[in-house]
């Protein structure tokens, strides 16, 4: 997670921009979020309904942010 954070920071520091870069940064954030949910929150040791809320939460705003950035580019 620290490595992914440093990649995100470097992209910001270098001023890299564009839709591909933005969505790549978002993907890194979603991966980190998944790691927090699965391993820190312990949801990888849960079955059924309660295994999924964090993943769904990550995907929902992730999708909306993606749509907004794609529309902004167009």
């Amino acid at each position: 997670m620290v490595a992914l954070t440093l990649v995100t920071y470097s992209i910001g520091r270098l001023g890299l921009s564009g839709l591909d870069i933005a969505l790549g940064v978002l993907l890194l954030a979603l991966i980190k979020g998944h790691l927090i949910g699965a391993y820190f929150m312990g949801l990888n040791r849960v079955q059924g309904f309660w295994r999924w809320p964090v993943t769904i939460w990550l995907l929902l705003p992730g999708l909306l942010i993606t749509i907004a950035f794609v529309l902004a580019e167009g």
């Binding site: 954070t5 995100t8 920071y9 992209i11 910001g12 921009s17 933005a22 940064v25 978002l26 890194l28 954030a29 979603l30 980190k32 979020g33 927090i36 949910g37 820190f40 929150m41 964090v54 990550l58 705003p61 942010i65 950035f69």
Partner: peptide
């Protein structure tokens, strides 16, 4: 612990969205 991880989780999206993505 679960509450604290939630605080961390939210920041992990907030940071790139507000500070980096453009």
């Amino acid at each position: 612990a679960s509450y604290w991880h939630m605080v961390d989780l939210v920041w992990l999206i907030l940071f790139p969205l507000v500070y980096v993505m453009h």
